Simulated assay, not measured.
Amino acid sequence: MNRTALRAGWARGGIELRQSFTNGGDLFNHFFWPVLMLVVLYFLRDVSFGDSGFELGTLVLPGILGMNAAMAMVSMSQLLTAEREDGTLLRAKATPHGMPAYLIGKIISVAGGVIVDLAIFLVPALFLIPGLTVGDLGSWLTLGWVLLLGLVATLPIGAVLGSVFSSARSQGLLTLPILAMIGTSGIFYPITSMPEWVQWIAQVFPIYWLGLGMRSALLPDDAVTVELGESWRHLETVGVLTAWAVVGLVLAPIVLRRMARRESGSTVAARREKAMQRVG
């Protein structure tokens, strides 16, 4: 990938990110999930988890951060599918270095939006939930590398999934499995309380490891007693997230190029005509 594509991608991603803060619908999306999760935390703040001595809200907060980071793959998939339908992808294909620049721009804009969403959630949550290790520089460094590695692991996979679906209406087929993974990944309740077979399945996917990494950053050391093996497993977190990142970064350019080759003015026009017929 040459410098021209990198510069174009950075510029495109920055423009899209800025535009998302001037659009009413995008602003609503930026605030909806953070506010909803704050409401969930409010009701969990005084609920104790067994005999651990920790409130459930304290254990859940870092997991919510990991969940929202992982959900970036859904946002990436939805955006790519929508822009495939409206011809944006076709226009990117027609410009020099257009596809690499398009992918870089989408990663930057989606990742930037996720970071803003997490900040909207985390800042008030720090005042709502006690017992977090937010005064330690090491905690913030851990939070940073887990978040960055998690986004690299999930966003390219989202691009691959967006290439698979032919229309935005079929995205529900993706959302339901993602919600199932969230429900079994220890986000809202520690995974040690779930059946062993569920624990093994959860550890295959990045959502669990994102949540674990966030908990290792924000929770005190004695909170590790509610984790599998009573360990934060940083090496395993790096290994699994890196594996997903490699798979996504290898597959995404290949899948996008193949999808772009099938795109033409006639296919975009045909999709628009079908959409108009359904509306009519």
Rank of each mutant, 00 (worst) to 15 (best):
Leu149Thr: 09
Ser170Tyr: 08
Pro124Leu: 11
Gly158Tyr: 03
Gly183Trp: 05
Phe127Arg: 10
Gly112Leu: 03
Ile129Arg: 00
Ala153Arg: 00
Leu173Cys: 07
Val116Gln: 09
Trp145Glu: 07
Leu141His: 12
Ala168Glu: 09
Thr175His: 14
Pro124Ser: 10
Leu149Met: 15
Asp136Arg: 10
Pro177Thr: 13
Val114Arg: 00
Leu161Ser: 03
Val152Glu: 00
Ile182Trp: 06
Ile115Ser: 03
Ala119Gln: 03
Gly158Asn: 08
Thr184His: 03
Gly138Glu: 07
Trp140Gln: 08
Gly113Leu: 01
Phe127Met: 07
Thr142Phe: 08
Leu155Tyr: 01
Asp136Glu: 12
Gly144Glu: 05
Ala111Tyr: 04
Val164Glu: 03
Thr133Asp: 13
Ala153Lys: 04
Leu126Ile: 14
Gly131Pro: 04
Leu176Cys: 05
Ala159Glu: 05
Phe165Leu: 15
Gly183Ile: 06
Ser167Glu: 15
Ser170Met: 07
Phe121Val: 10
Pro177Ser: 13
Val110Pro: 01
Val160Cys: 15
Leu176Val: 15
Leu173Val: 15
Gly113Trp: 02
Ile120Pro: 04
Ile157Glu: 01
Gly150His: 04
Ser167Arg: 15
Gly113Asn: 01
Leu118Trp: 13
Gly150Pro: 04
Thr175Gln: 12
Leu128Ala: 15
Leu128Thr: 12
Gly113Cys: 02
Val164Asp: 06
Leu137Ser: 13
Leu161Phe: 10
Gly135Phe: 05
Ala180Pro: 09
Thr142Asp: 06
Gly183Glu: 07
Leu176Phe: 15
Leu149Ala: 11
Val134Gly: 10
Ile129Val: 15
Phe127Ser: 14
Asp117Val: 14
Leu132Phe: 10
Thr175Lys: 11
Ala180Lys: 07
Ser170His: 08
Gly183Cys: 11
Leu143Lys: 00
Ala153Trp: 01
Trp145Asn: 03
Ser163Val: 08
Arg169Lys: 14
Leu147Gly: 05
Ser170Arg: 11
Trp140Glu: 02
Gly113Pro: 05
Leu155Glu: 00
Gly131Val: 03
Asp136Cys: 08
Ser167Pro: 03
Leu151His: 03
Val160Phe: 05
Ala111Cys: 12
Ala119Lys: 04
Leu141Cys: 09
Leu126Gln: 14
Val134His: 10
Ile182Lys: 00
Ser139Asn: 10
Gly158His: 05
Phe121Gly: 10
Ala111Val: 06
Gly131Lys: 02
Val114Glu: 01
Leu151Asn: 02
Phe165Gly: 14
Leu179Pro: 04
Trp140Lys: 14
Gly144Leu: 12
Asp136His: 11
Thr154Asp: 08
Leu149Gln: 11
Val152Asp: 01
Leu149Val: 12
Pro124Cys: 06
Ala153Phe: 07
Leu137Phe: 15
Arg169Val: 13
Leu137Gln: 11
Ser163Trp: 02
Thr175Met: 15
Gly158Lys: 03
Val116Cys: 12
Leu161Asn: 03
Ile115Asn: 01
Leu137Thr: 14
Pro130Gly: 12
Gly138Ile: 11
Ala153Gly: 04
Leu155Trp: 01
Ile178Phe: 14
Val114Ile: 11
Val152Gln: 02
Ser139Gln: 07
Leu155Ala: 00
Gly112Glu: 04
Val114Trp: 02
